[in-house]
Amino acid sequence: MYALKEREMIFVFTGPHGAGRKTVAEMSGSTLGMKQVISYTTRPPKATEVDGQDYHFISPAQFVAAQADNEFIEVSTVNEHLYGIKSADIELMFQQSGSIYLILNRFGAQTLKKLYGEHVVQIFIYADRATLEERMRESGDSEELIAKYLSHYEDEMAYRDQCDHVFENVDLAHTVFDLTKTLDQNLNRNLLDLD
């Protein structure tokens, strides 16, 4: 496992599926110059997803082989699919940036917090159930998949009390603006507030 240096920070974006974690994380990460560590998964990509950008899409056999070689520092199962983070990827991203971010479910967020303690800042992004359902329909998810994701909603929402920062993502621009200001304080960069 990679040993973090004093000023290295890991920002973990978590929350229910459809809340906009990925979009918020990417926009905030881009503004603050943070690199994303991409997770590995055995689930097939959605039509809009790109391998190596959204996830590293690998076969169950490849996942099991990497797991047997102890390449993953965190593994979880969601809707019968495996997800994992490789220690080598965390190390590589830290070579490129002093701070990194990941987009994880609550299990992944908990694992990283246990592993890296105060170096991990957990950011909970959420929206109400009806909004999530509407967003998933708009993105083309099947009714069966929407029902599966929403079946985890209450459990995901219960995790917010364990997170360092909580943001309701109703208006994307406002969420990203407020979040970027908050994360900047964690990074001690003091970005200019020009509004």
Rank of each mutant, 00 (worst) to 15 (best):
D54N: 02
I103G: 02
P60C: 04
Y101E: 02
H119K: 14
H152N: 08
A127M: 09
A88F: 01
T23M: 03
K181I: 06
F124E: 00
V64N: 11
L92T: 13
T111V: 10
V37S: 04
P44S: 04
F167K: 13
D178F: 09
F13W: 13
Q36E: 07
V24C: 03
D69Q: 14
E154C: 01
E6T: 10
Y159C: 05
I58K: 12
Y83M: 00
Y55D: 06
H17P: 06
I100H: 05
R137N: 07
D89C: 01
E74F: 10
V78S: 00
G52C: 07
L145S: 14
Y149R: 15
Y116C: 05
M1I: 01
T48G: 03
R137T: 09
L194K: 10
A3Y: 15
Q95D: 00
L191K: 10
Y40N: 03
S139R: 15
K113M: 01
M34H: 09
K86S: 00
T14H: 11
S97L: 02
E156G: 04
F94D: 01
Q185M: 08
S76L: 03
M157C: 04
E144W: 07
V50C: 07
P60F: 06
F57C: 08
T23W: 02
A61G: 03
D178I: 00
T131E: 08
Y55S: 08
D164H: 15
V121C: 13
E80C: 00
L104Q: 08
R160F: 00
A25Y: 04
Q95F: 03
T48Q: 08
E49P: 12
N70I: 00
A66M: 14
R106Q: 12
D161W: 06
H174W: 04
V166Y: 07
E8W: 02
S151C: 08
V166H: 06
G98P: 15
K5Q: 08
L102T: 06
H152Y: 15
Q96R: 13
H17N: 05
I103S: 06
D141L: 03
V64H: 15
M27I: 03
R189V: 01
K22R: 12
I85S: 03
E144H: 05
E6W: 10
M1R: 07
C163K: 14
H81M: 01
